[in-house]
Computed example of a mutant assay.
Amino acid sequence: MKPVNLNKLRKAKAKGDAKAKADENAIRFGRSKAEKAADTAREARRLMRLEQHKRDG
């Protein structure tokens, strides 16, 4: 039987667990680049419209 480096096994398991959690969070909280860009453009239009309706004074 071949000796096993327990540190490597422990780190590999931790890395796998972290990857699984990251994938789960990406599904739960992630938004695509297009969605983020659309929100940014929408916010810019909203601010421009607000600025245009301000009264000079």
Score class of each variant (00 low, 15 high):
Gly30Gln: 08
Gly57Ile: 13
Met1Phe: 12
Glu35Ile: 03
Lys36Arg: 15
Phe29Arg: 05
Ser32Cys: 08
Lys13Asn: 06
Gln52Glu: 01
Lys2Val: 13
Gln52Trp: 00
Arg55Phe: 08
Ala14Glu: 12
Asn7Lys: 12
Thr40Ala: 08
Lys54Leu: 11
Lys19Phe: 03
His53Asn: 15
Asp56Cys: 05
Arg45Gln: 13
His53Phe: 11
Arg31Asn: 06
Asp23His: 11
Lys15Gly: 05
Ala20Leu: 14
Leu47Thr: 07
Arg10Asp: 03
Glu43Thr: 07
Ala37Phe: 10
Arg10Phe: 03
Met48Arg: 14
Ala34Arg: 12
Glu51Gln: 10
Lys8Gly: 09
Gly30Leu: 09
Glu51Ser: 08
Lys21Ala: 15
Arg46Trp: 01
Gly30Asn: 05
Arg49Val: 09
Lys13Trp: 05
Gln52Arg: 03
Lys2Asp: 10
Leu47Tyr: 02
Arg46Asn: 05
Asn7Cys: 08
Leu9Val: 15
Ala44Met: 06
Arg10Ile: 10
Pro3Asp: 01
Lys54Ile: 04
Lys2Arg: 09
Ala12Cys: 00
Val4Arg: 02
Lys33Tyr: 06
Phe29Pro: 01
Arg49Ser: 13
His53Tyr: 09
Ile27Met: 00
Asp23Pro: 03
Arg55Gln: 14
Leu50Trp: 05
Arg55Met: 13
Ala22Gln: 13
Glu51Arg: 12
Gly57Lys: 13
Lys15Leu: 09
Gly57Met: 14
Lys33Pro: 07
Ala34Trp: 07
Leu9Arg: 09
Lys19Asn: 12
Asn5Phe: 02
Arg42Cys: 01
Asp23Ser: 15
Leu9Gln: 12
Ala41His: 06
Ser32Asp: 04
Ala26Gln: 04
Ala12Ile: 00
Lys8Arg: 14
Pro3His: 00
Asn25Tyr: 09
Thr40Tyr: 01
Gly16Ser: 13
Gly30Met: 09
Arg46Val: 02
Asp39Asn: 01
Arg45Asp: 14
Ala18Asp: 05
Asp17Ala: 12
Ala12Tyr: 00
Ala41Gln: 13
Ala38Gln: 10
Lys2Ser: 10
Pro3Arg: 01
Gly30Asp: 07
Ala37Thr: 15
Phe29Thr: 09
Glu43Trp: 07
Lys15Gln: 07
Ala37Ile: 15
Lys36Val: 13
Ala20Asp: 10
Gly57Trp: 09
Leu50Met: 15
Gly16Glu: 09
Thr40Phe: 01
His53Leu: 15
Ala14Val: 04
Lys54Gln: 05
Val4His: 00
Gly16Arg: 10
Glu51Pro: 01
Gln52Tyr: 00
Ala18Cys: 05
Pro3Met: 01
Arg45Pro: 04
Arg55Pro: 06
Lys8Met: 13
Asp56Leu: 12
Lys36Trp: 09
Leu6Pro: 02
Asn5Cys: 11
Ala22Gly: 08
Lys11Trp: 08
Ala38Glu: 11
Glu35Asn: 03
Met48Val: 11
Leu9Met: 12
Ala26Tyr: 01
Asp56Phe: 02
Arg28Ser: 10
Leu6Glu: 07
Lys2Pro: 04
Ala22Val: 11
Ala22Arg: 04
Met48Ser: 12
